[in-house]
Computed example of a mutant assay.
Amino acid sequence: MAEGVLSPGVNLEAFSQAIAAIQALRSSVTRVFDCLKDGMRNKETLEGREKGFVATFQESLHSVSRDLGELERLSNLVGKPSENHPLHNSGLLSLDPVQDKTPLYSQLLQAYKWSNKLQYHAGLASGLLNQQSLKRSANQMGVSAKRRPKAQPTTLVLPPQYVDDVISRIDRMFPEMSIQLSRPNGTSAMLLVTLGKVLKVIVVMRSLFIDRTIVKGYNENVYTEDGKV
């Protein structure tokens, strides 16, 4: 920064003189009001008091006019600050949000609930994956990648009680649909789904996966001679 310059485009010396001129102007204005306040005093005759008051008042007004002209001259010498002056971090103050209008508490509460729900579902997924039986076939040496058998999808093994509970909840979700559950083979669940008076569906489940479905009309018989589905 050059000597005598406050900032780009501002003359430091003229700026200092302008401050002194402002102080002188304030003193001149104060003397004008003091003259008006004192009025015509300290004179024996009326004519002498009038002449003294007018002379003092005119001198005070000339001082105000002289100091004001000097201040205007110095203000032209001070110059104008550069518009390209960098504000750095102070330019970001206008972007600060108002604290009362920032929904900080509600956002933190929502994030806390979401974190708890994520942890709960992650625990359920971990438990299901631990119950899954993985069967890996050993790869034979020398067999090309094109001839390797395609890996079969593994079956998710779940307790029968858990499967029954899921089907029971689905049945309660749809009042217009009824679900009858049976296990004729002891393990796989068989569902008889009746949709209003439209149709009936026999669904063979393997754990929670649908293995086979048979669609029947509403009036068709879905039971065998021994009363089984």
Rank of each mutant, 00 (worst) to 15 (best):
S133D: 09
P153I: 01
A138D: 13
I22N: 10
M141Y: 10
P149L: 00
M1D: 14
G48D: 13
N221I: 08
E83Y: 10
S137I: 11
G79K: 00
E72M: 10
V54A: 05
L92E: 05
C35L: 07
L191W: 00
L77F: 01
G123W: 07
L191R: 00
D164L: 13
M190V: 15
N185C: 06
P86C: 01
G186W: 05
A24Q: 07
R66D: 11
R26K: 12
M205E: 03
L61Q: 03
V29Y: 12
E83S: 15
F15L: 12
I19F: 09
K197C: 01
V193Y: 02
P160G: 01
Q17K: 13
P81Y: 00
S65V: 08
I22C: 05
L129C: 09
R31N: 06
P149G: 03
F15H: 11
V10T: 05
Q161Y: 07
A21H: 00
N221T: 14
L118S: 15
A125I: 10
G217A: 04
E44I: 09
L25N: 09
M1V: 09
S16F: 06
A151G: 03
Q107M: 15
Y162A: 11
T154Q: 15
K135G: 07
L74Q: 02
S126T: 13
N84I: 04
Q99I: 06
P149I: 04
E220G: 04
S27K: 13
S133C: 10
V29D: 10
S106Q: 14
E70W: 02
D226N: 07
K113Y: 13
R169T: 07
A138H: 12
Q17Y: 04
G217P: 02
T213R: 08
G196M: 03
Y120N: 14
P81N: 00
K37C: 06
P184A: 03
D171S: 14
S126C: 02
E225K: 08
P103A: 04
S133K: 09
N116S: 10
F57Y: 14
D171R: 15
K216V: 07
V157H: 14
K80T: 15
K146G: 01
G142D: 08
S182L: 03
V98W: 04
N76W: 04
Q110L: 08
K101E: 15
Q152Y: 06
V193W: 00
L208Y: 00
V201I: 10
G9P: 04
H88R: 10
G69H: 05
G123K: 13
H121T: 11
K117Q: 15
F209A: 14
E50C: 08
T224G: 05
E59G: 15
Y105R: 12
G79L: 00
E225H: 07
L191Q: 02
R183W: 02
V203R: 01
D100W: 01
T56F: 03
L128R: 02
R66H: 05
M40Q: 08
Q58L: 09
R148D: 04
L124N: 07
N116K: 15
R147F: 12
K80V: 10
S115R: 14
D211R: 14
I214K: 12
